[in-house]
Design a binder for these strands. Structure first.
Lengths: 323, 323
DNA sequence: GTGAAAGCGCTAACAT
DNA sequence: ATGTTAGCGCTTTCAC
């Protein structure tokens, strides 16, 4: 009937009817039923967004970016969390698709074959985010973690460092942290250097673990002049230990993390990092979905790289401690 | 037909048919349509979850808790973010309800009157979380921020502090931080003390702001022996400043935050805090929704308080700096 | 500009 | 244990 048109803001409704309908709707406290609408029109205004974890601030920021990018478009994000578990991811993707979302944003390129098939067959725009090292399903917004790792290594070598340690958390599940480590090690070996000592912890990264592992690593390898961490949280924990133990950072040992978290502003410049544009990646992925929806042909398989910038901070000004 | 029953795991289907159906479904890559299912059965397996922000780790942790609590129940969380904006909240609640969720979890007790009406009329279990200072719509899981503030004040007074400063971020929108401050000030005044110096910053709380504001506050009021912060992020920034400026914490000045973030493990015990059980609150709220769904009568209007524990850390052992 | 008819893909209730 | 019928609340298409 006319009511349906009026409420959806269809033109071809007289101003008089429109007003009457809207008035009536308010009076009875009516609000539509998206289920019926989407079922009938065979499309919904949901954009599925899948992230691996909510344990540090990185993915929440990506989600904020997506929300921003969707604001005012009439589309709505629907968030899901996999906890870095591929089976859970498959399950979640299936559930999301069964809501017939208009598009999907999913973290990483390493979905299981089953999941990839689901996504492909859904026949909606898919954007994989946060990584570009691999084979895409459709569009991609992110950067190469491998490159990020090697760029950090190059920068640290240029700053005169030569005895490298590594500390990582959650490497069993965090594919991207592994890629960074790989890129880091590869770049070092091109300079005939290597990671000579490393420590790992299972489970999620945390400041506390970084602190503990750094103490341990420096005990067993006191000659290290640089430690690369799987991310900023762990690196920051390392810095806390060093400050308390009066280990001079970065003069005696340089610490390098990853992400460029605002947390680092606690001690500006003391930790080298690669600043990732997390909100921008979220926003851009939302925009690509919207464009694809408006222009299905031209926007297939776009690739957008936002490589993080290496920031050395105070390290820039120091020389090798052996000088 | 039988297929529908088989796929939903209805009993009253012969093992033979069930297998044939499931086999066939896999062959053609069939997966159901939640839209149609929910429309038909007039209920969905979604639980709407509304949080104010994703800018620090607190609400992501609540969301993880909800996800945990829902795991294996067949219900699924659907997350929404309001950015501390009541109009956005109203909009979001409306949109969520139009998906006919089975229940709603929403942060805080300060919804607008319109939003409250929407929620009431939805006739589904509602759980408001994170706060108990106010009037509930249905069930509540959280704690009194007012009490949390006064308990911290009491603890600090007992620890011998007497000259109090306050630093807060985002107080324009963060109702709960305001309640803590109020409770803190009220408790102080019962001891004839008061907050004698404060600084605020607009916008979201961050470590960097805490650092900057603490420097400023200690410059203009060098005699303070205690600073209460709106939360741990800001407090931690303050600690970073003090460590760098060699201000003795907690001997000369005690710092107190709120939340018990794992970040504090960078310098264990140096910041007093109230440890909130964020995951537990998320999990419990999910459980209450599930119970209400199974047992509509008995579970109306439950109230669950999980008051945070004050942790003084190193401050416990110090005496007033004037001793 | 408005209305009537059909149907989206399921589930519920009732046969059989 | 399986099939049949009707209908959830919309949108679409086509008349008027």
């Amino acid at each position: 009937m006319t009511a349906s048109r009026a409420l959806r803001g269809d033109r071809d409704v007289s101003a008089a009817s429109r007003e009457r309908v809207i008035k009536a709707a308010e009076d009875i406290g009516y609000f539509g039923n998206h289920l019926a609408a989407s079922l009938s029109s065979a499309r919904s205004d949901l954009i599925g967004v899948i992230v691996p974890s909510l344990t540090n601030i990185v993915f929440p920021q990506v989600m904020s970016g997506v929300t921003d990018g969707l604001l005012g478009t009439g589309f709505q994000p629907a968030f899901g969390v996999t906890d870095y578990d591929q089976d859970r991811e498959y399950e979640l993707v299936g559930r999301m698709l069964s809501w017939r979302p208009a598009g999907m944003i999913i973290t990483g390129l390493e979905q299981s074959e089953k999941t990839r098939r689901l996504l492909l067959e859904a026949n909606i725009p898919i954007v994989q985010i946060m990584d570009t090292d691999g084979v895409a399903i459709d569009s991609v917004v992110g950067f190469s973690h491998q490159t990020a790792g090697s760029e950090m290594a190059e920068a640290l070598v240029s700053a005169g460092r030569s005895r490298f340690g590594y500390i990582g958390c959650n490497l069993e599940s965090d594919v991207r942290a592994n890629k960074r480590k790989q890129g880091f090690a590869d770049a070092l070996s091109r300079h005939d250097y290597a990671i000579t000592a490393s420590l790992f912890c299972a489970g999620l990264s945390s400041v506390g673990d970084g602190r503990r592992l750094t103490q341990e690593l420096l005990m067993q390898s006191p000659d290290l002049d640089c430690i690369y961490y799987s991310n900023d949280d762990v690196a920051f924990g390392g810095l806390c230990y060093c400050l308390e133990a009066r280990v001079d950072v970065p003069a005696r040992v340089a610490l390098a993390g990853f992400n460029g978290l605002s947390l680092l502003q606690g001690f500006p410049g003391l930790i080298a990092t690669s600043t990732t544009r997390r909100r921008d990646i979220g926003r851009a992925s939302a925009e690509i979905i919207i464009e694809s929806l408006q222009n299905p042909q031209q926007t297939k398989g776009r690739q957008l790289t936002m490589q993080p910038a290496v920031e050395l901070g105070a390290l820039q000004k120091t020389c090798s401690p052996s000088d």
